[in-house]
């Protein structure tokens, strides 16, 4: 526990050029993701490309707009940890339903439905 004085500097002051630089990078990435989605036909890879670009944008926002790069590491760990648990949640649910879900839609159901 640090016992600093009351005048201790709290928080990092981000220079304006950096704020604007991040903003323009975000706009460019947005344009890029729209372009790749509408003009590049990569099949299943499109979604991953979109997710990679989105993750880059999210990283920029988190690091610079949200000050994580200058912050106590714990706060970053909290955010990354939250995302890890999201991935865990999605991953296991997907693992299960990928085995199961097609079953639920196939079979002789329509014969009953159209009668």
């Amino acid at each position: 526990m640090s016992h600093g004085h009351d005048s201790e500097q709290v928080g990092h002051i981000v220079p304006l050029w950096l704020l604007f630089g991040v903003f323009f990078a975000l706009i460019i990435l947005t344009a890029l993701t729209v372009w790749t989605a509408t003009h590049l036909h990569l099949g299943a890879f499109n979604i991953w490309l979109a997710l990679i670009i989105a993750s880059m944008k999210a990283t920029l926002v988190a690091l610079f707009f949200m000050h994580l790069i200058w912050d106590k590491p714990y706060n970053g760990i909290v955010l990354v940890g939250a995302f890890m648990f999201v991935i865990l949640f999605l991953g296991i649910s997907l693992m299960d339903t990928a085995e199961n879900m097609p079953d639920m839609y196939e079979g002789p159901a329509p014969a009953v439905a159209t009668e």
Partner: peptide, 9 residues
């Protein structure tokens, strides 16, 4: 930032 590509693109 994640919703936009996942839903629109």
């Amino acid at each position: 930032i994640f919703l936009f590509p996942l839903l629109y693109l």
